[in-house]
Simulated scan of single mutants.
Amino acid sequence: MAMVDASSVLLTEEAPSSRGWLRHVELAVPIVLLVLTVGGCFLWPLIGSVPSPVGGDVLSSDLPPFSPGHLLGTDPNGNDVWARILYGGRNSLIVGVAVNVIGLSIGGTLGAVSAFAGGIADTLIMRLLDVLIAFPSLVLVLAVAQSLGPSQLNTIFALAFFSVPAFARIARAATLRLREQPFMVAAMLCGTGTRRTLFRHIAPNIAPQLITFSMLGMGITIVIEGALSFLGLGIPAPAPSWGNMIAQGQQSLSATPLLVVWPCVALFLTVLAFNLLGETLRGRWSGR
């Protein structure tokens, strides 16, 4: 019996340490992927020798990977594929970050104010957002992008507009839970102003939920931006994005499949990193 008890104690002591090591890995893997992606897309062109992503030499078209001066080869227009991956990733990441910052700022503010104010203000704000949620967002994004025309700014506007309701609902639900907490009741009884309450008590406490959702939203936004660019409604050629690189590569898919593979791999790894980071942060902040 003594040996059994000792082994059970040993197992219970080892489990937390192994779990702690796993949690560090879960956080480290997506962070490393994102650091490599962001560093490669934004810093490498500044400090490394990266050719221009447009205006290539047609005489150097369709070079295979590891050709002299072209790590991943060239496309049918003679543009360096590695350069287009980096600059295309920069454009895709800018869209993803901008959309989620706008959605978090506007939607988070609307949701927090709606829940804190209550009454008719809460009803009006949430019913308006419900109307937006009721429409098929992807179809409306396509319609808005088509009507505004393909550009990076229009893509950001179209996607940000439909990200606001989701952030607002998350902020509202988190704020409603906070209103019942003792520190919030004490703040209201002490006569703390609305602005101070929102910025000092509510915003810091709902930030983890909003940041976690924004990490997951980054992956979704980058995929949708890629789909819009694939359809010619996102970032217009010749400016690179992973979506329009895939669209251009499919025209010569049988002859040069790597022109589609490279941007697909970059898109997959980036979206995977954001999803893993979002899930890990959600687990940590929820106490799991």
Rank of each mutant, 00 (worst) to 15 (best):
Q181R: 12
M188H: 05
E180L: 06
T175C: 05
F199K: 12
I120M: 13
V185C: 03
S147A: 15
L140Y: 09
R200K: 12
P150T: 11
T194E: 04
A173C: 02
A173Y: 03
P136I: 12
I170P: 07
L138Q: 10
L142P: 09
L148F: 13
L159V: 05
G149C: 06
D122M: 02
I133N: 04
A174D: 11
A145D: 08
R127N: 03
A187T: 03
D130N: 04
I125V: 13
L159I: 13
L132G: 05
I120V: 14
F199D: 04
L148A: 10
S137P: 09
I156K: 10
M126H: 02
F135Q: 02
V139K: 05
G119L: 09
R200M: 11
I170C: 06
N154V: 05
L140I: 14
R127Q: 02
A186L: 14
E180A: 14
T175I: 12
V141N: 12
F183E: 08
I156A: 00
D130Y: 02
L132R: 04
V131R: 05
S137V: 11
N154F: 04
A121N: 01
Q181Y: 05
Q181T: 11
S147I: 13
F161S: 10
C190S: 15
G118R: 04
A121H: 01
T175K: 06
T192P: 01
P150M: 03
R172A: 11
F199R: 14
A134L: 03
P136D: 02
I156E: 12
R195C: 12
A160P: 08
A166I: 05
F167D: 06
V131M: 08
V141S: 00
Q152E: 06
I125S: 00
A117P: 00
F161Q: 06
V131W: 01
T194M: 12
A187N: 04
I120L: 15
R179T: 04
A117D: 00
E180P: 00
A117I: 11
A174R: 14
A117S: 09
T175A: 10
F167Y: 15
L128T: 13
L132N: 03
R127P: 03
G149F: 13
A160E: 03
L128I: 09
F199P: 08
A134V: 09
I170A: 07
F116S: 07
I170R: 08
A166V: 08
S147W: 13
A115Y: 01
V144L: 14
A134N: 02
A160Q: 13
A168D: 01
R177K: 10
V144D: 06
Q181D: 07
A115G: 13
I170N: 07
F199A: 13
P165Q: 07
Q146W: 09
C190H: 05
L178V: 11
L176W: 08
L132P: 00
G119K: 02
M188C: 03
A173V: 14
A186W: 01
A171F: 08
L176A: 08
T192A: 12
T194G: 07
A143C: 01
V139W: 00
R179Y: 04
A171T: 08
T155Y: 05
F167M: 12
Q181A: 07
L153C: 04
A166T: 09
I125P: 00
V131Y: 01
T175E: 07
A115T: 04
L128P: 00
